[in-house]
Amino acid sequence: MAHSGIDVLTAGSNFSRLLGGLWVTIKIALIAIIIGLIIGVLLGILRTLPNRPLRFILRLYLEFFRIVPTVVLLFLFYYILPKEFNVNLPADAVATLVFALWVAAEMTDIVRGALESVPQHQKEAGQAIGLTYWQLQRYVLIPQAWPLCLPATVNLMTRVVKTTSLLMLISVMDVINIGQQIIEANNKTAPNGVFWIYGIIFIFYFMINYPLSRWAKHLNKRRLEANH
């Protein structure tokens, strides 16, 4: 092969543009995860309350974000809702919002599951020594539920990072979108550039997600060891 196409990566400002795209990806994922975690934990605690209408509404929220594909959500929030309600957010903000709402929805279920799996006698013991509802949460339930929901939460993070690849649909200049620009711009001189661009994007995603996935595994192992 006369031309392997690897210099597509180094030509001009291509590599720094890819890094710029990666930064957009990371920024959106990170802010969405942080906001989503906070909202998700709060709503997750609310879901353990005995209030039926509240539980129903939160369940509906969860199911909506779980059932509707992310592509549809992005399309809805970027193209359809602004048209109908006259709010016009920039693409990056819409992306962050959709991902945050999605993370929050998934988190409510993780948190609820973790809280409910704390043994009943722990809760009863807490009540017996006269703890209030919030004291019970703060000193008994959350400390014990926390390790249970960590691995699932970290897994959710890796899913968020991967799903950012859909953002090109709503004109976000993320790493995939920049990658496609470079591929098309060089298709004539370096048809094999596509391999290198997607290769480097693979490495980027791997570098973010592999440590996360290792961390999830490690947390899970530690939790199991602590239980024995």
Binding site: S13, Q180, Q181, E184, A185, K188
Partner: peptide, 13 residues
């Protein structure tokens, strides 16, 4: 952004 020669991005971005 990906349709040379109509609308695309050159190597200097």
């Amino acid at each position: 952004g990906d349709l040379p020669p109509y609308g695309w991005v050159n190597k200097s971005g």
